[in-house]
């Protein structure tokens, strides 16, 4: 099985440890992982900020770069959400039927990490060990666009040493929303404050999620409040042994 890692621009630039963990985990599970270096970004930021024309070349690039693989795996529900739910619309909007066929084919083989592990690899127990009290924020796009459901929780519950605690109001958005955090910074900060309070109320030492973007937001709030909770991506926990 030819598996490609879609690293996502944010992880590439800001959170390489999440990419390394994803590679390590997939290799440990026996996959031959490739990282095509022609990849850059899914174009979601452009699309969601109102620049579909600028997103289109990135959609084309994504479809080209990942065309030859059996599976494309990304440590991000949001970026996979964009691939599966926005790329087709952007191709159609451009009136490019060929591109539309291409993106449909790639999108059908693109997986968020927990989907790949549960649905393709077929197990919740990836042999991880992580002796910490962890609470999990199910990011909006994983939850609602991809409908990953309890897949991340099943993976976490199978991790030895890990104590998973419920996050109150888990399904409420943390307030990141891409450029929303800048364009509506005050509302975003108010949402973040409530999310941070919920995280603290769990008594967990680690807040995890399947998206580095949301974790960067929640982590930024925790850090600003000098609060003793670390943000750790799901991939990093599952890669730990």
């Amino acid at each position: 099985m030819r598996v490609a890692l879609f690293i996502t621009c944010l992880v590439d630039a800001m959170f390489p440890q999440v990419g390394k963990a994803t590679v390590g985990l997939l290799e440990r599970l026996g996959y031959d992982v490739d990282v095509p270096l022609q990849q850059t970004c899914c174009g979601q930021m452009h699309t969601n900020t109102g620049y579909p024309d600028q997103a289109l070349p990135l959609v084309r690039q994504f479809a080209d770069v990942f065309a030859g693989y059996d599976a494309v795996v990304a440590p991000s529900g949001s970026c996979v959400g964009s691939v599966r739910h926005q790329h087709a619309g952007l191709a159609s909007r451009a009136g490019d039927a060929g591109l539309r066929r291409q993106v449909d084919a790639v999108a059908a083989r693109t997986y968020e990490l927990s989907e790949f592990l549960i649905d393709v690899h077929g197990t919740a127990d990836v042999g991880a060990y992580y002796p910490h009290r962890v609470t999990y924020h199910p990011t909006c796009h994983s939850l609602r666009l991809l409908q990953v459901g309890d897949r991340p929780h099943r993976l976490l519950r199978a991790v030895r040493g890990l104590e998973l605690v419920d996050l109150p109001g888990a399904e409420t958005c943390c307030g990141f929303g891409g450029t929303f955090a800048l364009k509506n910074a005050d509302v975003s900060a108010a949402m973040l404050a409530d999310k941070v309070e919920a995280v603290i109320s769990t008594g967990a030492g680690v807040c995890s999620a399947g998206d580095s973007s949301c974790l960067m937001h929640i982590g930024g709030g925790l850090s600003r409040g000098d609060l003793p909770v670390r943000t750790v991506h799901l991939a990093e926990i599952l890669a730990s042994t």
Partner: peptide, 25 residues
Amino acid sequence: WPMSAWTRARDLPLPPTETFRDWWV
């Protein structure tokens, strides 16, 4: 500005010393 809108209420982690793609290469 415009990233000041972010840092009014949140910290930003330091960029890493090595990007993921550089590590991969």
